[in-house]
Design a protein around this nucleic acid. Structure first.
Lengths: 220, 220
DNA sequence: CGGCGAATGGGACAAATGACGTAGTGCCCG
DNA sequence: CGGGCACTACGTCATTTGTCCCATTCGCCG
């Protein structure tokens, strides 16, 4: 572990990249190996390092919610094509669904943007060590989610999640039916069931829950 | 203008504060006068400086979307109680409604977080000079909004906006009526009218528009 | 003063939504 | 193999939502 750890910083906000780099510069055995503004750029950077036979960074510090390529997607791609690179998520969103998605896709850590320098350092060292680091708040939420499998989107069947996503896009039952190639009655059954499971009384509330759980992106 | 400009950095994300401070440190006649993690802290800091008869910062660089006290609120408070402090907004959200709200509440600038150091510098100098600096993208959106007054929340009456906000919280017509102390029929009239003005066909879509326009915060 | 838009409500009606019960089919797991 | 679950679908019914009329009351503005 006395070896220097190369870190690729991926965030669409220049200010955030600057802050992260400032954190990393203060660390002894960590070196910023590059910056990228989105998932696509990050992959391009890694690819280009590989063809030049230059060493890949050990860790990628990555935002979720980026243009071009979403953090979750990018994490999955990196895990698939560059398995020696550990991905640590650094984001302002603490949605359990996103956290789970990221971890399932191979993320080796999850930090919130209000993390201090020491937490970032800990996450990077953990990742370089093939451990997983979770922000305290993140870990707590995950634990809560585990403890209470009854409340929340996790209780939904995959089909119900499909329907919920469409509801959260403002579609009517008829439109949902057409989209999923089922009858409107079935769509209504799914909506009714998911409302029941989530303890809601209208599809309007379902939109909010879907947003809160990160099932759909907030509209831009 | 050779005088040093004091800047108060307000953001709930430590990483972002660090990045901004790094930007500011690189500038000659700018000095970081303090940091705060939310609007409340920012006001407390200013208040405490005032009672100690210490000089107030000329500029506050502030995020929107913070816990404790929202950026728009904080901007209004600062403009009211500390008129000598110029507030520059630095946020990742480009919603026209929020921009307008911030500017109407006395903001002296609006930057997006993908802004580079030079833009931050320009905004601070402009603010210290009693000018207003707008990010290029922000200015463009504002201009678009001005050019097309027909589409968008701007066409709504204030009462309709009230109703829309409640719709976007998942309330039923009956609940909205109770909340606003009007009859349910009137609530329905308002909903119907605002749907027409926005070109929508259901309240579910209205939720999305309200979010997109920043009329309500995305649920946490 | 006259008009105009905003806000308030009502009647009537059509459409969408949601709840509840029932049921066939397919699939996985013990 | 049998039970359970997900997915599909329908019938019925109550409620909500949304539309199109209309009317009244303000307050503001020319």
């Amino acid at each position: 572990m006395t070896e220097t750890i190369g870190v690729l910083v991926v965030d669409d906000h220049a200010v955030v990249r600057r802050g992260v780099v400032a954190y990393l510069d203060a660390l002894d055995n960590v070196e910023v190996a590059g910056e990228a503004a989105n998932g696509r750029e990050a992959l391009d950077t890694l690819e280009s390092l590989r063809v030049r036979r230059q060493p890949l960074p050990r860790v990628a510090l990555m935002d979720l919610m980026m243009p071009k390529m979403d953090g979750v997607e990018a994490t999955a791609e990196i895990a698939r094509r560059f398995p020696e690179v550990r991905v640590v998520i650094l984001t302002s969103f603490g949605e359990v669904e996103r956290i789970q998605a990221a971890l399932e896709n191979g993320a080796a850590g999850y930090l919130l943007k209000d993390a201090g320098p020491s937490e970032v350092a800990a996450a990077i060292h953990a990742a370089a060590n093939d451990d997983v680091f979770l922000d305290t708040a993140v870990a707590r939420r995950l634990a809560q989610k585990m403890r209470s499998p009854q409340s929340g989107v996790a209780a939904l069947t995959s089909r119900e999640r499909d329907v919920l996503v469409l509801v959260a896009q403002g579609r009517s039952n008829r439109e949902i039916a057409t989209e999923l190639v089922i009858s409107e009655r079935t769509a209504r059954t799914h909506v009714s069931n998911l409302l029941g499971k989530l303890g809601l009384r209208s599809r309007t509330q379902a939109v909010l829950v879907a947003m809160r759980e990160g099932l759909v992106a907030p509209p831009s």
